[in-house]
Computed example of a mutant assay.
Amino acid sequence: MKKKKKIKIHKDHKGRNYIRESYFVGGKMKFRKIYVIDGIPEDEFYEKNATDIDHLRNGEYWLISSDKDSDDLCDKSNNNEPDLSDNKFDDLPF
Score class of each variant (00 low, 15 high):
A50C: 04
I40A: 00
Y18K: 00
H10I: 02
N80Y: 11
R20M: 14
N80H: 13
S85A: 07
M1R: 13
L84C: 06
E60K: 11
A50F: 01
K5A: 01
N87D: 14
M1S: 10
I9E: 01
Y35S: 01
D75F: 00
L63T: 04
F24G: 05
K48H: 03
D75H: 06
F45T: 02
Y23A: 00
K33H: 11
D86A: 07
E21L: 13
F24W: 09
D83R: 04
D75R: 12
H55P: 00
D90Y: 09
R32T: 10
L73E: 09
I34H: 11
D54S: 00
E60N: 12
S66W: 10
K76H: 06
I64G: 00
K14W: 07
G15F: 00
K14L: 11
N49H: 10
N78V: 08
E42K: 07
H13L: 09
D38L: 02
T51L: 04
Y18M: 02
N80K: 13
Y46T: 04
D72M: 14
D52Q: 04
E81L: 11
E21C: 12
N58F: 03
D67V: 10
K3P: 02
W62N: 15
D54M: 03
F31H: 11
K68D: 14
F89E: 15
K3I: 02
K2M: 08
F94N: 15
I19V: 12
I9T: 05
S70V: 15
D83I: 06
I34G: 05
R20Q: 15
K48V: 03
C74I: 13
D69H: 09
F24M: 13
S22T: 14
V25L: 13
H13P: 05
N78R: 09
D71V: 11
D83G: 04
F31P: 04
C74Y: 07
N87E: 15
T51Y: 05
H10V: 01
E81C: 07
N78T: 10
D69G: 12
R20C: 13
K14G: 06
I37M: 00
V36P: 03
I53N: 12
D12C: 03
K2C: 05
D71C: 08
R20V: 14
K4P: 00
D43E: 12
P82S: 06
P93D: 10
K14S: 09
S70L: 12
K30F: 10
S85V: 02
F45W: 08
P82D: 07
D38W: 00
K6Y: 00
H13F: 11
K33F: 06
D54C: 01
E81V: 12
L84V: 08
N17A: 08
D71R: 08
R32E: 15
R16W: 02
Y61I: 13
G26T: 02
F45E: 02
D43C: 07
I37L: 04
